[in-house]
Simulated assay, not measured.
Amino acid sequence: MSLLFTIFALVFLTQLIAWIGQSVLLELVYVAYLRLFHSATPAKQKKLKSEILTLKAELLRTSAQDQFAKWAKLRRSVDKGLADLEKINGEISARKSSFSMQFNSAVWVLTTGLQFGVGWWYRREAVFYLPKGWFGPFGWWLAFPFAPAGSVSVGVWQMACKRVLKVAERVVKEIAAPHMEAPEKSSEPEKVSKKSD
C-alpha cells in the first residue's frame, strides 16, 4: 500500500506545482533565497538607486552655465552611479538566471524525474490487485507493461491519479467560478427620490 500512496503523492506534488505555476514558485523561492544568502546586494541596489535619484534631482536644480564645476562633478557622480547600478543589475540578472535554471532542474527531478525513477524501479511490481474477471480480456492493459496479470501497474496507476486530479481541478474551478465572478449590476435604474419644495 505504501507504493500506492507514494505514487499518488508524487503525482499530486506535480499537479500542485502545475496549479500554482512554476514561475510563481520560482519568484517566491528566489525572493527567499536572496533574503537568506544575498541580502546585501538588493540593499546595495536600493541605496544606489536612491543616491542616483538624489544626485539627478540636484543636477536638475544646478545650472550648467552658472555653476559648471558643480554641475560637471554632479554629472560625473550620476554617470558613475548609473554604471555601478548597471553592474549590480547585471550581477542580479545573472544570479537569477542561474538560480532559475537550478530551480527548474530541481523541480523536474523532484516531480517528473522521480516519477520516471519510481516507475522504472517498480516496473514489475503490482500497485494493487483487482478481483478476478473485473475487466475481462482488458485486464492485461491495467498491468501494462511488466506488472503481473490481474494487477494495476505503476504506470497505469500514475495515469489514473493524474486523470483524477485533473478532473478534480476542473470540478473545483467550475464550482468556484460563479463565486469568483464580479457581482452583476441590476438592470433596473436606481430610483432617485426628489424632494418637493
Rank of each mutant, 00 (worst) to 15 (best):
M1P: 08
S2I: 11
I7A: 06
F8G: 04
F8D: 04
F8I: 07
A9I: 10
L10A: 05
V11I: 01
L13A: 14
Q15E: 11
I17M: 13
A18Y: 02
A18M: 06
W19P: 15
G21F: 02
E27R: 08
E27V: 13
Y30P: 03
A32T: 09
A32G: 08
Y33T: 04
Y33L: 02
L34K: 07
R35L: 08
R35C: 01
H38F: 15
H38M: 06
H38T: 04
S39Q: 04
S39C: 10
A40H: 12
P42S: 07
Q45C: 13
K46Y: 01
K49S: 07
S50A: 05
S50V: 13
E51G: 06
I52V: 00
L53A: 11
T54Q: 05
T54S: 13
T54G: 01
L55V: 08
K56W: 04
L60Y: 07
D66T: 14
Q67I: 11
Q67G: 05
F68I: 15
A72Y: 02
R75E: 11
D79N: 11
K80D: 12
D84F: 07
E86G: 09
I88Q: 07
I88Y: 00
S93A: 08
S93D: 00
S98K: 10
S98G: 10
S98N: 12
M101P: 02
Q102C: 05
Q102Y: 05
Q102K: 08
N104A: 01
W108N: 03
L110C: 00
V118W: 06
G119T: 07
W120T: 04
W120M: 02
Y122I: 00
Y122T: 00
R124M: 08
R124I: 01
A126Q: 07
F128H: 04
K132N: 06
G133A: 04
G133I: 08
W134E: 14
F138Y: 14
F138A: 07
W140I: 08
W141D: 10
A143M: 01
F144Q: 00
P148G: 06
P148Y: 05
A149Y: 14
S151N: 06
V154D: 02
V154S: 00
V154W: 08
G155P: 06
W157P: 11
W157Q: 01
W157C: 00
C161P: 09
V164P: 12
K166W: 14
K166F: 13
K166S: 02
A168V: 03
E169P: 09
E169M: 12
V172I: 15
V172H: 10
K173I: 12
E174C: 14
E174D: 15
E174Y: 15
I175V: 07
I175F: 15
P178Y: 02
P178T: 03
M180I: 13
A182R: 12
E184N: 13
E184P: 13
S186E: 13
E188Q: 15
P189I: 06
V192F: 08
D197T: 12
